[in-house]
Simulated scan of single mutants.
Amino acid sequence: MEGGNALAQFLPLILIFAIMYFLLIRPQQKKMKEHRAMVEALRKGDRVVTQGGMIGKVTRVQEGELEIEVAQGVKVRVVRHTIAEVRSKTEPAEG
């Protein structure tokens, strides 16, 4: 009977972990995957919002950073992963 009793003691712990996985961990992983894909798809001409709240147009794309024009003639370099949202995408170049 001790084997059944031990399982009954650990069952609530297992259920709590399963609920946490499906309600917290899995959605967060999905959100991170979507953000990574969005950041990798950035290209010149996209209008973006940074996590700091600056809105601008991507003027240059480099390995780990972007150059964003926030006003006419005012360009700022930001790390790619600080982009929070893409407001409008440019059409892909034909060729």
Score class of each variant (00 low, 15 high):
Ile19Ser: 11
Gly53Thr: 09
Leu66Tyr: 06
Met20Ile: 15
Gln51Asn: 15
Glu85Tyr: 10
Ile14Ala: 10
Glu34Phe: 05
Met20Tyr: 15
Ala84Met: 07
Gln51Cys: 15
Thr59Phe: 02
Phe17Gly: 09
Arg43Leu: 13
Glu2Arg: 11
Val58Gln: 01
Leu15His: 05
Val74Ile: 13
Ile83Leu: 01
Ala18Val: 13
Ser88Asn: 04
Gly73Phe: 07
Ile55Thr: 13
Lys30Ile: 15
Ile25Phe: 04
Gly56Asp: 06
Met54Pro: 01
Ala41Phe: 06
Gly56Asn: 07
Arg47Leu: 10
Ile14Gln: 00
Phe22Met: 13
Leu24Pro: 01
Lys57Thr: 11
Glu94Ile: 14
Leu66Val: 04
Arg60Lys: 09
Gln62Asp: 12
Ile14Leu: 01
Met54Phe: 06
Glu65Thr: 13
Glu2Cys: 05
Leu15Ala: 09
Val49Trp: 11
Glu67His: 14
Pro92Val: 09
Ile25Leu: 10
Lys30Ala: 14
Gly64Ser: 13
Val39Lys: 09
Leu7Arg: 14
Ala41Ser: 08
Leu24Ser: 07
Val86Ile: 07
Gly56Ser: 10
Arg26Pro: 00
Val49Gly: 07
Lys31Ser: 14
Val48Glu: 07
Thr82Asp: 02
Arg43Glu: 06
Arg77Asp: 10
Ala93Phe: 10
Glu65Lys: 11
Glu91Val: 06
Ile83Ser: 00
Gly95Tyr: 12
Gly73His: 03
Glu40Met: 09
Glu94Val: 12
Leu7Gln: 13
Ala37Tyr: 08
Ala6Pro: 07
Ala18Asp: 06
Tyr21Asp: 12
Pro27Asn: 05
Glu34Ser: 09
Pro12Leu: 01
Pro12Asn: 01
Leu23Pro: 01
Glu69Ala: 05
Thr90Trp: 00
Leu13Pro: 00
Met20His: 14
Asn5His: 09
Tyr21Trp: 10
Gly53Ile: 03
Gly73Val: 03
Asn5Met: 11
Arg36Gly: 06
Ile19Leu: 14
Arg26Asp: 02
Val48Lys: 02
Leu24Arg: 09
Ala18His: 02
Ala6Trp: 12
Arg77Phe: 12
Glu2Ile: 10
Phe17Pro: 03
Ala84Lys: 10
Val48Ala: 08
Val74Leu: 14
Ile16Asn: 06
Thr82Gln: 02
Glu65Ala: 08
Gln72Leu: 03
Met32Pro: 05
Thr82Trp: 00
Glu69Asn: 08
Ser88Met: 04
Val61Lys: 02
